[in-house]
């Protein structure tokens, strides 16, 4: 197992390198001049050039890349053009809210979706199954920003039960922090829940049609034991794969949801930085998101071995 982890981490290095190059090139090839954001539209060209020089954008692109990537290798992601502070500091501040949001969304998705998927597979074509199908269809078809706005309108504006926007850090007030997570977690987690429910249902249906399930039933084993021990255990790996995909999808989905809920996480940081062409922050964010994706995939791969004894990494 340890060898596998080390091997995977070594493979990660060229991937991160490639992501770094791609992030840098993408950001620099996108039209838009960061210097323009410091000045009025009427600013003379000389002033724009002066700001460009101050930001280091007057250097040739290979030099800029070498400087930036050299810093990254030493753990320095650069300094934000706009906030004039290290990108790492900005991540340290913005990462926890995103982590809380993603985690609660995932928990919500799993606790809602897995039971729905299992029951709708066991009771295929029942009323519950049809309800689950509608649930999945709505979840897949509803844009999370729109769902977010509806939730704010209902639970914050009309009922006044929950905050409309913002995030209260748990170290400030645990209860208010929990409250501030509820609506964004639902908005973000619903589409993930729909995906997981759908995959759980189809995975379970496939397993329930296997010979060994029929044999178990023929032997007179209790139906619940057949469903939850024999079938679910074997259907779990595809579900795990989807959960892994859902985590990545939740991280990317947080870009929009954080904007709608004015949530001070990585997602809003990325969106603000893209609009302002704050290159060091965009590049750092892409690296961070790529790193997280690799990490999630590694964890999912390791969990396969836990859930399925046939898988060995040694």
């Amino acid at each position: 197992m340890l060898t596998f982890i080390i091997r995977r981490l070594i493979v990660t290095i060229p991937v991160v390198l490639m992501v770094g190059i791609a992030a840098f090139l993408l950001v620099h090839l996108t039209p838009g001049d960061p210097a323009e954001f410091f000045l009025d539209p009427d600013a003379p060209v000389e002033e724009v050039d002066r700001i460009r020089a101050r930001l280091g954008l007057d250097q040739p692109i290979p030099v800029q890349f070498a400087l930036w990537f050299g810093g990254v290798l030493q753990g320095d992601l650069g300094t934000s053009f706009h906030e004039q502070r290290p990108v790492i500091d900005m991540f340290v501040r913005a990462f926890p809210p995103t982590l809380y949001l993603t985690f609660t969304s995932l928990l919500l998705a799993i606790f809602i979706a897995v039971p729905i998927g299992i029951f709708s597979a066991i009771r295929q074509d029942s009323l519950l199954d049809r309800f689950a199908t509608v649930f999945v269809l709505i979840g897949v078809a509803t844009p999370n920003f729109w769902l977010g706005l509806l939730l704010i309108q209902l639970f914050a504006v009309q009922l006044g039960w929950l905050p409309a926007q913002g995030f209260v850090r748990p170290e400030v007030d645990v209860w208010r922090s929990f409250q501030s997570l509820i609506l964004p977690s639902i908005a973000l987690g619903y589409s993930g829940a729909a995906l997981i429910a759908r995959m759980t249902r189809s995975g379970m249906l496939e397993v329930l049609r296997q010979d060994y399930v029929r044999t178990a039933r023929a032997k007179g084993i209790d139906e619940n034991r057949v469903n939850y021990v024999h079938a679910l255990r074997n259907a779990f790996n595809p579900i795990l794969t989807v959960i892994g995909l859902a985590v990545v999808s939740l991280i990317s989905g947080s870009l929009v949801v954080e904007l709608v809920f004015n949530f001070p996480g990585i997602g809003r940081l990325v969106v603000d930085s893209v609009f302002r062409r704050d290159y060091p922050v965009i590049q750092g964010s892409l690296l961070l998101i790529a790193g997280l994706t690799i990490l999630v995939n590694l964890v999912v791969d390791l969990l396969y071995a836990v859930t399925d004894p046939r898988i060995r990494y040694d």
Partner: peptide
């Protein structure tokens, strides 16, 4: 969101 925050009294 700004508009909704106003209506919600935040």
């Amino acid at each position: 969101t700004r508009s909704l925050a106003l209506f919600a009294g935040e």
